[in-house]
C-alpha cells in the first residue's frame, strides 16, 4: 500500500476521535475562555447576546470577599492537605513495599475509602465521627476526661473537612507510589545493602530520587483534585454554602446557577473562575516540571 493511501487511512481512523475531541473538549474550553471576557447571564446563552466586558469579570471575582475566602480555603486544602496526603501515602507505600506481613490486607484496607462513595464517606465523617453528641472523636475526648469539642464549629470546620478528605485520598496516592517503587530495580537496593546503606539512606538516596517523575505526577493530580474540590465542600455545608468550607468551584457554581434564595446568575464571572483555576493548575505543572527534572534518570 502506498504512503499516500496509508496517510488517508490513518486520517480516516483518527478523524472521529479528533472531531469528538474538538467538539467536546476544545470548543468548551475556548468558549469558556471567551465567555470570561463577556457579560453573560446564562451559561448556554447564545453568543450573540454576550456583551463585551473586558477584564471586568476578573476584576469582579478578585474583589469579591467570598471568592477570596474560597481561594484561601483552596490554598489550605492544596498546601496542608497536599503535604500531609502525599507524605503519608509515600510513607505507607514505602512501608508496604518493604516485605512486611499482611501487605495485601493493608493495601486493600487503606485503598478501601476510594471504592466507597464519597457521599457515604463524607456523611460518615459529618454525622458520626465529628458529631457533637455521640461522635467517635467526642466519645474519645470525654473518655479522656476533657470537654466535648465542636469539631464542625466555624474555627475547625475547614480542617475537619480537610482531615476527612485526606482519609479518603491517601489510598489512591499510595497505589501510585507503590507502582513507582515497584518499578525501581531491586538490585539497586541489594547493592546499597551490601555497601552498608541504612533503610533511611536507601530511601533518600535511591527511592526518592527515582520517584521524581511520580512525585511530579502526584503533585499535579493533587492540584487538580484541590482545584476541582466540590463534593466534600457541598457535603460539609449541605443546606447552603458556608464561608468556612467555600472553595472556588462552589463559588463558581453559586455564581453561575445562584444559591439558596439567590437568583442572580453570572456565567461570565463563573467562566473567569474556571480560567483562573486552569491557569493555577498549569502553573503548578510547569513549576514542578522545572523543579523536579526526572528526564536525566534512567534505570
Amino acid at each position: 500500500m502506498s504512503m499516500k493511501k496509508n496517510r488517508a487511512l490513518i486520517f480516516f481512523f483518527i478523524a472521529p476521535t479528533v472531531i469528538c475531541l474538538l467538539l467536546m473538549y476544545v470548543y468548551p474550553v475556548l468558549r469558556t475562555v471567551a465567555m470570561s471576557f463577556f457579560r453573560v447571564e446564562s451559561v448556554t446563552a447564545d453568543a450573540g447576546s454576550w456583551t463585551f466586558n473586558g477584564l471586568a469579570n476578573y476584576d469582579k471575582i478578585f474583589h469579591n470577599a467570598s471568592f477570596i475566602t474560597s481561594m484561601k480555603n483552596f490554598l489550605a486544602i492544596w498546601i496542608v492537605g497536599g503535604v500531609i496526603t502525599l507524605a503519608l501515602s509515600l510513607l505507607i507505600a514505602v512501608i508496604l513495599t518493604s516485605k512486611i506481613r499482611f501487605q495485601g490486607f493493608f493495601r486493600a484496607a487503606i485503598y478501601l475509602p476510594n471504592i466507597v462513595s464519597a457521599v457515604a464517606l463524607a456523611t460518615m465523617w459529618v454525622q458520626y465521627i465529628f458529631n457533637y453528641d455521640y461522635g467517635l472523636l467526642n466519645q474519645l475526648v470525654t473518655f479522656l476526661g476533657f470537654d466535648k469539642v465542636r469539631w464542625l464549629g466555624t474555627d475547625a470546620k475547614l480542617w475537619a473537612m480537610i482531615a476527612a478528605f485526606i482519609y479518603g485520598s491517601i489510598g489512591y496516592y499510595m497505589l501510585i507510589y507503590i507502582s513507582g517503587i515497584e518499578g525501581i530495580p531491586t538490585d539497586l537496593y541489594e547493592a546499597a545493602t551490601i555497601d552498608g546503606a541504612s533503610k533511611a539512606r536507601q530511601f533518600f538516596s535511591i527511592t526518592l530520587p527515582l520517584l521524581k517523575g511520580i512525585v511530579k505526577t502526584t503533585i499535579t493530580f493533587w492540584t487538580i483534585n484541590a482545584a476541582t474540590f466540590y463534593l466534600w465542600s457541598k457535603l460539609f455545608s449541605p443546606v447552603q454554602t458556608e464561608g468556612s468550607t467555600i472553595v472556588p468551584v462552589i463559588y463558581l457554581y453559586d455564581t453561575v446557577f445562584g444559591g439558596k434564595g439567590v437568583i442572580e446568575r453570572d456565567a461570565g464571572a463563573g467562566a473567569a473562575v474556571g480560567v483562573v483555576l486552569t491557569l493555577i493548575i498549569i502553573a503548578v505543572y510547569v513549576i514542578t516540571d522545572r523543579l523536579l527534572k526526572s528526564r536525566d534518570l534512567e534505570y
Partner: peptide, 12 residues
C-alpha cells in the same frame, strides 16, 4: 443580604 459580595463570610 444574600447578594452582598461577602455573604459567605457574613454567614460565618
Amino acid at each position: 443580604l444574600n447578594t452582598h459580595p461577602a455573604w459567605g463570610d457574613m454567614k460565618t
